[in-house]
């Protein structure tokens, strides 16, 4: 016998799992593009959790129709999630633009390499010896 599994629990597990996967990806990725993807996954998990915070198993979508309806779900989290999703899209687009420019500037999207080059550039601009020990920051067209 397969124990009865409620769809709500599956959704909750999915939301929390997405957040965990995303956070793990954020911490462990060595590639900037993967960092962006991990951020997107984390946001998806948080959005799913938010929409579930107003969910009722026994209720219908909050749209008034001619048919006799039952109880409706809470419309507020749905509106909030709509907002949060669009915010996420904007942030991800900007992040991709930045990744493109970083690749153009440094020729690499490796997290450690970009970090080192950034520190070098900042030190060079301030007129300090470079932290990486190089003579001058490597130039990339």
């Amino acid at each position: 016998m397969i124990p009865e599994l409620h769809v709500g629990w599956v959704l909750f597990a999915g939301a929390i799992g997405l957040i965990a996967i995303g956070v793990g990806g954020l911490l462990m990725s060595r590639d900037l593009f993967r960092v962006v993807l991990a951020l997107a996954i984390t946001e998806a998990g948080a959005n799913l959790l938010l929409v579930l915070s107003g969910y009722r198993f026994d209720a219908i979508a909050p749209i008034v129709t001619n048919e006799v309806g039952g109880v409706m779900v809470d419309p507020v989290p749905q509106a909030m999630v709509l907002t949060a999703i669009v915010i996420g899209v904007g942030v991800q687009a900007l992040a991709l633009g930045l990744v493109l420019r970083i690749y153009r500037a440094y020729g690499s999207i490796d997290v450690a390499e970009v970090r080192r080059r950034m520190d070098d550039d900042i030190a060079a601009e301030a007129g300090l010896p470079l932290p990486s020990g190089r003579e001058k920051p490597a130039v990339h067209s």
Binding site: L26, L39, A95, R115
Partner: peptide, 15 residues
Amino acid sequence: GAAFAAGFRYLVISG
């Protein structure tokens, strides 16, 4: 380059 990299790190932490 430094401004882009700093902006990206800022974006990820902030996100």
